[in-house]
Simulated assay, not measured.
Amino acid sequence: MKKGILVVTFGTTSLKARQATTNKIIKKAKEQFPDFLVQGAFTSRKVMDKISNQEHTNIEYLDDAIQKLKQKECRELYVEPLYLTESNDLAKLQTVIHGYDADFQKIVFGDPLLTTVNDFKDFAIFLNSVGDLKLDEGNLFIGHGTAKSNRFILHTTLDYMMLDTNSFVGTVESYPDLGSIMQRMRIKNIQRVHLYPLMLVAGIHASKDIVSGEKGTWNKMLMDGGFETTGQLIGLGEYEFVQNKFISNLKRVVEVSR
């Protein structure tokens, strides 16, 4: 009986970003599970259509990817969502894929990146290890943010876990906000701030807030606040730690389901 693995993410039109993140995770999944059919999938039709018009790719739109695995007679489907944590988007993804329950004997989901308390603790330790900070330097990891409780808790929890360090987590649309972070940085006498995206892929939004000097961006507001800044356009999915965590999540559900 054939078994399939679906590695799912929203998608990005940046070839460089895909090569550094999604493609590497798919490659690791193929190496870890040589007897499985491994397929990458994007949930954004808009992104997928744009890619298809520009280049050849082995990643499919979600429904097309599932159909491809069906045609190859997969009877068990294991899904690893490349998401930061539980969210409405993940719930929608699960609903869509479970719409194919009749086509498979089994559909099993792996966890997103952060699910348990230990996941958060390990991830906070990882974030604080990024770079080689001097005493007057700090790391600021920037997420989109939302007022909805599940994502709100993600950022505040990570930020709280690093209170005794020179690493901070903030969100553009929610909390922790930049004003409160800058106050804490001044208390710690931080002079230089390294900005990183707290996003799986360093796309357009990350580029705007991290390296742009436009009015209203976090980079510009930090500079206006008297801080020196450097922008690091490195998506979370580019780090071995994150890639291996997704593979570990997938491995766990495959082993449990045997």
Rank of each mutant, 00 (worst) to 15 (best):
N139K: 02
D89W: 08
F10S: 10
Q191V: 04
L135W: 00
G226P: 02
L82G: 00
K24I: 01
M182I: 08
T157H: 03
G99Y: 07
R192W: 00
K215L: 15
V242F: 06
T21S: 09
I181Q: 03
R184I: 05
Q54D: 13
S87N: 01
D101V: 06
M182V: 05
N128K: 04
F168N: 07
F120V: 05
K3Y: 02
M162Q: 09
T156M: 11
M199S: 00
R184C: 04
L114C: 10
I51W: 04
K92Y: 06
E173M: 09
I181P: 08
D119T: 00
G138H: 09
H144S: 10
I190Q: 10
S180D: 03
I51M: 07
I187P: 01
R192C: 01
R18N: 15
Y160Q: 12
Q243V: 03
V211W: 11
N166S: 10
T9Q: 10
A147V: 13
F152A: 10
K92P: 00
V47E: 08
Q32N: 13
T12P: 12
D164E: 14
H155S: 11
E255M: 00
V253P: 03
A41K: 09
S14E: 06
L198M: 14
A124T: 10
D224P: 14
A17K: 01
D63N: 13
L90H: 02
I187F: 01
P176I: 00
T156N: 15
G213H: 12
L200Q: 07
S180Q: 02
Y196G: 06
I5C: 06
L233C: 07
Q32L: 03
T116C: 01
L62Y: 03
Q71S: 12
G11H: 13
L198H: 14
M199W: 02
L77D: 07
I59D: 02
A41W: 05
I5S: 04
D63S: 12
M223C: 09
V79C: 12
D111H: 09
E173A: 06
T146K: 03
P197V: 03
D136R: 08
Q39N: 05
K215R: 12
L250K: 05
G225F: 01
I210W: 13
T229Y: 10
D122Y: 05
N219W: 05
V201N: 07
I153G: 01
T217Y: 04
Y100G: 00
L133R: 15
T165L: 05
Y239A: 09
G131S: 05
T146Q: 00
Y78I: 05
T230Q: 15
L37R: 02
T9R: 13
G235P: 02
N244T: 13
G235Y: 08
T146L: 02
Q94T: 11
T230D: 10
D111C: 10
M223G: 04
K24N: 07
V256D: 14
I142F: 13
F10P: 07
D63E: 15
I26W: 07
K215T: 13
G11N: 14
K3M: 08
T217G: 08
E240P: 04
T13K: 15
A29F: 11
V254P: 00
D64F: 02
D49Y: 03
K50V: 15
Q54K: 12
S167V: 03
Q32E: 15
T171L: 00
I66T: 08
V201Y: 03
F168A: 06
Q19M: 12
S212H: 13
P197D: 08
